[in-house]
């Protein structure tokens, strides 16, 4: 069973292709002489489906990298990025950036605390100055306001 697992990729493409083709038909294909909004997406979905089916048959399993403990780490990293976006919307850039950098530097870069903490604090401050002060990007209001002035 696990030997066939790599076929999930092409299978997903086929599913997307068929779903999109059906949805495109719902949009109205029109005539070839007067194409409707669905015609082009329909053609493209068919191409996706056909290539997906071909891949189901011919794809080389050696192309697929094994899932490892490192992979699990990446999943954790993705969750941390999602958490960063939520935090960013809630409490602004500075603190969330510091936390995110600290997390990544400590967990993924495996920097010791004596490097990770100063890098995270200084990094977040520098990017805050760059984006907010220099480029005037309106980040959501933070719980710490422009510490550079304080």
């Amino acid at each position: 069973m696990s030997k066939q697992l790599y076929r999930l990729g092409p299978l997903l493409l086929v599913v997307i292709g068929v779903a999109a083709a059906l949805a495109a038909r719902g949009l109205g294909l029109g005539e070839l002489s007067t194409p409707g909004p669905g015609l082009w997406p329909f053609m493209v979905s068919i191409l996706l489906t056909v290539t997906g089916v071909v891949l189901l048959v011919i794809d080389d399993p050696a192309d697929y990298e094994p899932w490892t403990r490192g992979t699990l780490g990446i999943a954790l990293g993705l969750v941390s990025l999602g958490a960063f976006i939520l935090l960013f919307q809630a409490i602004g850039f500075l603190v969330s950036a510091m936390l995110m950098l600290l997390f990544w530097l400590r967990i993924f870069a495996r920097e010791p605390w004596r490097w990770a903490v100063p890098l995270a604090v200084i990094g977040a401050l520098v990017f805050h100055l760059l984006f907010v002060e220099a480029l005037a990007v309106p980040f959501p209001d933070g719980i710490v306001f422009a510490p550079a002035r304080g």
Partner: peptide, 17 residues
């Protein structure tokens, strides 16, 4: 690793801007 951490932060802040 350090490079990756900072690059990710720049990506997120950059795309928001």
């Amino acid at each position: 690793g350090i490079l990756a951490s900072f690059a990710l932060l720049v990506t997120m802040a950059g795309v928001f801007s």
